[in-house]
Amino acid sequence: MLAVLLIVWFALPLVPLALWAFADRWSFPSAIPTVWGVDGLDAAIAAGGPAASGRSFLLGLTVALIATPIGALAARGLVAGWAPLPKILPVLLFAPVAIPPFAAVLGTNVLLLRAHVPPMLGLVVVLVAAAVPYTTFMLRTAYAAHDVGFEEEARTLGASAGQVLWRVHLPLMAPALARAAFLAFLVGWSDYLVTLIVGGGQFVTLPMITASLAAGIGNDSVVAVLSLTAVLPPLILLVLLARTGSHRRP
């Protein structure tokens, strides 16, 4: 019963999107689309949706691949106590979330531009900074609950550092790592402001197309298709990651 209620809670707001995605026409006061069709899909393709999704995927993946190991290091360091500045580091890590995005992005961009950092590198740097708090805190709670005993044991049994990492540590941490990577992926996958302002408009991503179309009236159908597109790859990624995680779980 509880589960069903939660499914309703999460699914209900998606109903307008799901209906609009296949509505060629939906005029007031009809409760359901008046003409069904795939105009929205056509418009999404015409707007460059597929190529933009590819770019967003690449960006999300890059951010995840960088921010997850950093988060793991920071989390482990904080939990184990060897992280530098153990009092300041958590505050520093909360700060990117606490600074209103427009202020953070524009201020940082002045720095990056002044230092002649290439726009694409700057884009990755800022998105990684935005993702690291999520990966760190996700993993910090996981490491706090993590039992280092298994690794100790493996080492005592003569496993090398690499073996301990790959055979013991990663499998144990897989579910948390997968979720941290997922959150980091989403930071890159769904960003508009940083991609535009720091990336300098050279890299047109899915959120840029979606958000700009959403700013106008009469685009609900194409916006719905693009939004649903935006939901699928992360979901597939999460399922894949969860699967690898659960297989290796001891």
């Binding site: 508009y192 840029m208 197309i209 700009s212």
Partner: peptide, 20 residues
């Protein structure tokens, strides 16, 4: 370059100028 608001373009230009 599709943008949500023309202000986004202006803000990019102003930041560039601010950074010299």
């Amino acid at each position: 370059v599709p943008i949500v608001d023309t202000k986004d373009a202006l803000n990019r230009v102003l930041t560039e100028l601010q950074a010299g």
